[in-house]
């Protein structure tokens, strides 16, 4: 691979901020002992063995399940949304896309906090419900709130790839299908849906990956009652001070995500996805 001198800054950047940290995490995961001052330490797989404890595997399983649920909801909500936007005329289309993208300009954490003020016992929604004379609802610090937070935060990542694939579908294909006798439903199931699969795969990947590794949403909106794999890693680094175990969990997560990416890639062999990864 011939390298122009202009690419050196990027290589250095990658080396410092991506490759070296990865190697460090790998190093931590396979060692134990006084690693910081390179004192007494030994190479070991104990950290990984420790992860095989049923309680930790349960946390991993729960995280995957929750991530799959939120991905599914994002898909069921996102596909129709993408279709609606793609069918609108150009001016309206851009305005609608903007509606999706502008919240993303705001800090992720702030947006999640905002839900606290909406969903809280004395929050806006319950305020309206109470003033209408009903009993306040328990909307926060439960499983549903976490799902809501995940869907809210990750929905644009499902909508945008699907939308970008849908608008690339040549209108003449739809006309040809109608010309050959296909009703609107048949056009959708036989032409539009199959052609939008690369976008769907992209959307799935872009939602599933952050969903499975999130810890902020489960912490803030779940009231700390639902420990996910992200929380477990955070716990090791911030509270237990066990960087070795935390790194081992991170490596397991990374392997897992790489496997799911490989599976997804099989569906999108031509890389028509339009996603970020």
């Amino acid at each position: 691979m011939k390298l122009k001198w202009t690419s050196y800054p990027y290589i250095v950047w990658m080396a410092i901020f991506i490759i070296i940290p990865l190697l460090l995490i790998l190093f931590f995961s396979i060692t134990s002992g006084d690693v910081f001052r390179l004192g007494e330490f030994q190479f070991t797989l104990d950290n990984f063995k420790r992860f095989m404890n049923p309680i930790y595997l349960k946390v991993l399983g729960r995280s995957i399940t929750l991530a799959l649920q939120s991905t599914a909801i994002c898909f069921l909500l996102g596909y129709p949304m993408a279709m609606i936007i793609s069918k609108a005329e150009l001016k309206k289309r851009n305005a609608m896309i903007l509606l999706f993208v502008v919240p993303m300009w705001m800090n992720f954490l702030l947006r999640t906090y905002a839900w606290l003020t909406l969903l809280g016992r004395n929050g806006l929604i319950n305020y309206i419900i109470k003033s209408l004379g009903f009993e306040p609802l328990s909307l926060i610090y439960n499983n549903k709130a976490i799902l809501l937070g995940m869907v809210y935060n990750f929905l644009p990542f499902m909508v945008l790839p699907i939308y970008s694939v849908l608008i690339k579908i040549d209108n003449s294909l739809i006309e040809a299908a109608e010309d050959l006798g296909a009703s609107k439903l048949e056009v959708f199931t036989r032409i539009i849906l199959p052609l939008s699969i690369p976008g769907i795969v992209s959307g799935f990947t872009m939602v599933f990956m952050p969903a499975v590794s999130t810890f902020v949403i489960s912490s803030l909106l779940g009231g700390g009652k639902y420990m996910l794999i992200g929380n477990l890693v955070e716990q090791q680094f911030l509270w237990s001070g066990d960087w070795n175990f935390g790194s081992a969990i991170s490596i397991v997560m990374m392997i897992f995500i790489l496997i799911s990416m490989a599976i997804m890639a099989k569906f999108d062999e031509d890389e028509k996805g339009g996603g970020l990864w």
Binding site: K225, Y226, L232, Q235
Partner: peptide, 11 residues
């Protein structure tokens, strides 16, 4: 750590 995880992961 394990105990706390077991408490937090119980749902």
């Amino acid at each position: 750590d394990i105990i706390w995880t077991e408490i937090k992961a119980e749902y």
